[in-house]
Write a protein that binds this DNA or RNA. Structure first.
Lengths: 213, 213, 213, 213
DNA sequence: AATGAATGAGTATTCATTCAT
DNA sequence: TATGAATGAATACTCATTCAT
């Protein structure tokens, strides 16, 4: 039994354990985002993390749990970044641009992962149920809800045409995904800033209100 | 010894073979769209098709090929339907509505399948390469190209704001996908017609040009 | 689908399948009786049967089922042999001798297997429940019940002291097991006939009624 | 530096060590008798003992050794109890009853453990050899030898029919085991005293000499 | 001595694919 | 052509054992 210690103070042992856990999670994310849940093997992940297979199971009960934690981590991180960046923006227009940039950056860095949040079917032969999406969907819905508020503000300011805010948020989601996939499929390696510019320009052309109107 | 036959005339043997092939393809589509490439087993498909596993291999070299043919079939069918329905439409506005309805119907009937066409990563532990998407991407690109022409015509008629036609096509794609996923995730079982109405209304609110402008 | 055939007539395919199934069952029995349920591996059994591991699963859903079928087979065979041999005996005394010989022979040939029938605890890390013994216990109880009738007849004929017939049957069971284990532990390799003679002599000394009484 | 100490006087350290060792042994017995050698894990035992896994290895080289010590402890305890209780008995008849009670009590408390002493085959995938039984068999043989003397005395007193004393001892062993297993299998939860009465009555009916003979 | 995280060999099970009939 | 039994490589997960602290 560990010796008594002040609360909140982690022993070296505990700090190390936390570090290792994080390392495994990060390795898992790299492997999963490269191969997907089914194609990634626990051995792949162990090798990437430079741990033994057994170690993975010290931290995560099984592959599904590991997957689910990876997903949740990305979702939580994304939500936090979304809040931070939109609040830091000087106005609705800038916040929308920040959102576009964020989505593109995450799509770039986390591969097919973001898609998981909008996935509507099982996706694993191990756990046939859709247990994972549950918590993910909640995070995603929160994000969409907050994004909708942002669009509402933009509409109030006369930056966007008036329309249902949630559907507007979903529209931007869909447009970013669609454009991004198009660029990847066609091997167009535009810099992120250019990608963001294109999406923004297009979105405002579509739904923006012309200056002189 | 097969009897000599006029070209274009199929023997009973050949007709049967074609029928069997089609039956397997259809069974495979049902199973794949329910379980996905990795979770579906060849035995599942054989059972659904009421053939033996061996029979599957007489028609399709391996699982990947079968998958790829299923995908291609859907793509080809979709493209044909797209052409038929847009050409039958009385004008660009009606053609766009037809396109929306078609996409929603396919999403409904073919589950996550359409997503495959925009998929940018492997997806199977068997053939890790992205060999499949190749032909699929070609079909998809053709479709996007033709849809772009449709949007160009709509812009020329003053129905839509002027913008890059391809990106406009991609936008509609993204919006339909996004909305559809949202409805599925939230268990909203709207009738297809209502779904189409919502998408259309929204798309035109976004990028349409008000009557009086 | 196999062509229609007269009922009860097996095709070559079916005959072969039955043969293979039997071969696997026999190999499994050899391995299980040498190593026990937990120590025996499916690969051991496959090697012994000269089949692939996969083949084992064509016939038996999993290791537990295979084990359980092996057990059941031995139990059923034993019961059949018990009935055949006791009915063939010229009288109760001879029937009891036949029973003793049979038990000793089975103990010899099937190793620790018979013990399974009297096992009262789980016995496998795979299936923690005691699902297997269920059917086995039924077979064993049937055997004990029929053996009791035999002892009742022997008592009626004045060959054995009067006592509860079931407990008498259990007593003989216990004595045979105990003696057999003793001989094995001490490396005494008596011929079966001698083993039977010793048990019989002892059992009748214990519970028989002296001629002159 | 350990302080010098008189022989036979244990330091606190040594006393504690002995206590811990005993605690582990007892925990191991509980777990082993519940799950058996193969199904019990070192972690199960550690948890039950409220020690770490590592601690188990400071006292016992490996699982087999721990198992073997547990077995030996039970055997040694049993032998001691057997000697104490039979010597305390007022005569052979009472001693035999005490023996029956003792065996039934041990069977009750130690589950399938006693069976191990008559086990004639390996029993673990770890150490495939039969190394363990060695010492156990010696203890068991000693017990059987001493029990035989007891039966010899009973025969001399005219309480039992004359027969080989060792086989008589083995017979009682077998009868107790057989009856006990029968009761457990059939869910009969007789009190120990009733169990003992039944065995005793039966044993004497079988091999006792009627009063009037 | 005690801890418990890390190791990695071992095993049941699945499933795409082949091939004799 | 069609069958389906047989193959065997692949993989998630377990657990005895070690060892740095």
């Amino acid at each position: 039994m560990p010796k008594t210690k002040a609360q909140g103070i982690l022993t070296r042992r505990e700090r190390e354990k936390a570090t290792h856990r994080r390392a495994i999670l990060e390795a898992a994310e790299r492997i999963f985002s490269e191969k997907g849940l089914d194609c990634a093997t626990m051995e792949d992940i162990a090798r990437e993390a430079e741990f033994s297979v057994g170690a993975l199971y010290t931290f995560f009960r099984n592959k599904e749990v590991l997957w689910s934690e990876v997903i949740a981590k990305i979702g939580v991180d994304f939500l936090a970044a979304f809040r931070a960046e939109t609040q830091a923006a000087s106005g609705p227009r800038e916040a929308i641009l920040a959102l576009i940039q964020l989505k593109l950056r995450y799509a770039q860095e986390h591969g097919a992962f973001l898609r998981v949040f909008t996935e509507t079917r099982p996706g694993s032969r191990i756990l046939p149920a859709a247990a994972i999406p549950r918590n993910c969907h909640a995070i995603y819905d929160t994000y969409i809800g907050e994004a909708a508020l942002l669009f509402k503000a933009a509409m109030a300011k006369g930056l966007l045409r008036k329309a249902d805010a949630t559907y507007t948020a979903l529209s931007l989601e869909g447009i970013v995904n669609s454009f991004k996939a198009y660029w990847v499929r066609n091997g167009m390696e535009l810099p992120l800033s250019e990608q963001a510019r294109l999406v923004q320009q297009f979105f405002f052309t579509l739904s923006g209100i012309p200056k002189g109107a």
